[in-house]
Design a protein around this nucleic acid. Structure first.
Lengths: 362, 362
DNA sequence: AAGAATAAATTGTACGTACAAGCCAGACGA
DNA sequence: TCGTCTGGCTTGTACGTACAATTTATTCTT
């Protein structure tokens, strides 16, 4: 028997732990006395004491002099467990992200979890910093919004580490292609499709599209934009499709828009924008070109952010679940943590909200 | 000797722990062997083993068979210290709060601290929940934005508990009157004064003021508003001063504004609003009354939020440090934690930003 | 000089005894 | 009936022995 190599007190320890697992020992229940155990297992009381001592230090047993040894609530361990969940988003203060965080925070607080927050500013180095900090202490789970998801993922090692440590995580808005994990996202392709389709239905033909290319959300929205053109039998002119990166977001699309609008009769009559933030920026470009929204140029945004209704001309845009996404991400993660459920992807269908920034053409 | 009552192995344990404290035992250093200790202290090896066993379980010693017993890095305990700072704000997703959080988050991340976030929705019960959750696990420090600071503070016990536990905290925007603690805030009274003074300078005489009364920010802004009137020798009519609570914020001021604007020639020509959020709401009230901003009614907001520039008519408003306040709160708290500094209050002077919502009168 | 065997020291395992200290139920006495 | 006491149980402390397993330095062998 290879049992010969395992010390007796360890064998007894494993035996007792199996009692806990099988439910043979319930919380508060008295454990046979040291002498009884010693006799039953054919070992000396001292050896039993060694086992009991370790189990007591580890919180499984409680020994009371003169009274006996008792099984301690093993749930105490889970009760005292971390209960902290981290969220890593690209931005904190801007745009729709505060709403996502808020949804998650409310859910977590009501479920007794603490929320660790960190942002990456869409910068992979800061993503690494954040991952390191988050995992530097015990963590129950992690919600991550990928940084520049369309590019490679240099922090793959950290995610694998999460898996090794048994820290469940899920992604929102997008997922890294390299990782298999649950993801809550908007159907961006359908959104891009709907935006373009809607404009085409209103009689627009020369539609410009502005999409971010370093995250998959932008790539997918562009994909839908092109698909709608194809379905309508109208070719989307490559010169009216602008892609840009996070770093260029405040300059390149604006300049390209000015450029297009200066093309006289050939200028586009509508803009599909990656998101509301860009839409507001391009509204200014339109205005700077001496044109008006929506009379001269129609604009569609994305995400139905507060910017969409706050701006002078209220933006027609596509919805994003925002708060609900945060809330759902939190509750799914808790389900994974507490009940070991395996969550499936959740895809939200964006709805078009008609406001004032799109004009009927013809 | 009362030593008689203390078991030998406990006496030895205390002795060894004192060695750690005095530096007699440094990390990695070898401890005398069990037999040596037994001889020195006149006890059996078994008793020494009991002591060593406990100290090993508690992380003070490392025992290696055949090699000896070694002092484990006691700094390990401090090295793994918490480095987590909590922030409790009234709101997360709205208004200027995301910017405050962002400032603090960036600072904390760069200094190697984790950020725990929680919100109260300006509700004292949720404040209690948040405090409980935050302190349920080790915490280095806490930044708190008081909830309804003008009212009493039912969670005083929790704050005293923080002091007992030695968790430093500081307040932003306002402080609870009952607590002595460092506070970073805007000079709200000066802000209210400047707003009213500016309008009076532009020739306005009938100025209405809308202020929140359940937090001290609102109370102080109102105080400044009244002081400016007094200094100008113009009485502020009580019927043009509206105070409201958090729960009423979306209804009462709006209705009161409509009411005032319906007063014909006696209607106010300017509104001083508690903050930009209210200012935007009241702009709608003006518009709903068939009047225009700023031609018929001038409006001044507060906090220079994104709403101020996003709205159709850009708001004249007073500045709030926002991101800088978050950043400074974080860095001061870290200074308290790491160097035991005692931080003094920091008062930011608000600046008036002239935009388009105020008209010169006469 | 390099490797192998050995010895000494260390901690680990296992059993043993003895008594102290604390809890509890049942016997006992007022 | 109530309180007290006692005996028997429990775990706690303390010492003891013996040998196993591991490390390290030393010695021996090649």
């Amino acid at each position: 028997m290879n049992n010969r190599r395992i010390p007796k007190y360890m064998q007894l320890k494993h035996e007792l732990l199996s009692w806990f697992e099988s439910g043979k020992l319930q919380r508060g229940q008295q454990v046979p006395s040291e002498n009884e155990i010693a006799e039953q297992f054919g070992m000396s009381r001292q050896t039993v004491r060694q086992t009991f001592g370790e189990l007591e230090k580890e919180g499984w047993l409680e020994r009371i002099q003169g009274k006996g040894t008792f099984a301690r609530n093993p749930e105490r361990r889970e009760g005292e467990q971390v209960k902290t969940i981290g969220i890593i988003t690209t931005y904190i203060s801007d745009y729709i992200f505060p709403h996502i965080v808020r949804g998650a925070e409310a859910e977590l607080r009501s479920r007794g979890y603490r929320l660790l927050l960190s942002s990456t500013d869409n910068n992979k180095e800061k993503e690494m910093e954040s991952l390191q900090l988050m995992t530097s202490q015990p963590l129950s789970g992690l919600i991550i919004e990928p940084t520049k998801s369309a590019e490679g993922n240099p922090n793959l090692a950290y995610f694998l580490e999460l898996q090794e440590k048994g820290i469940p995580y899920l992604m929102i808005n997008e997922k890294y292609r390299e990782l298999e994990c649950t993801c809550l996202k908007v159907n961006d392709e359908a959104g891009g499709y709907k935006a373009a389709e809607y404009l085409l239905e209103q009689g627009h033909v020369r539609i410009a599209g502005f999409f971010k290319r370093d995250d998959l959300q932008g790539v997918n929205r562009l994909k839908g934009f092109l698909a709608a053109h194809k379905a309508a039998g109208i070719s989307a002119s490559p010169k009216r499709v602008v892609t840009y990166t996070t770093e260029q977001k405040n300059t390149l699309p604006y300049q390209q828009a000015l450029h297009m609008l200066a093309e006289g009769e050939e200028r586009p009559t509508a803009f599909v924008c990656y998101n509301d933030e860009l839409a507001v920026l391009l509204m200014e470009a339109v205005s700077a070109s001496g044109l008006r929204v929506p009379e001269d140029v129609s604009i569609i945004g994305f995400d139905d952010s507060s910017l969409a209704s706050a701006s002078g001309t209220k933006l027609t845009t596509l919805t994003h679940p925002k708060t609900m996404m945060g809330q759902e991400a939190a509750s799914r993660l808790i389900a994974i943590i507490e009940r070991g459920e395996t969550a499936e992807d959740r895809v939200y269908e964006p709805q078009l909200i008609e406001r004032d920034s799109v004009a009927k053409r013809n």
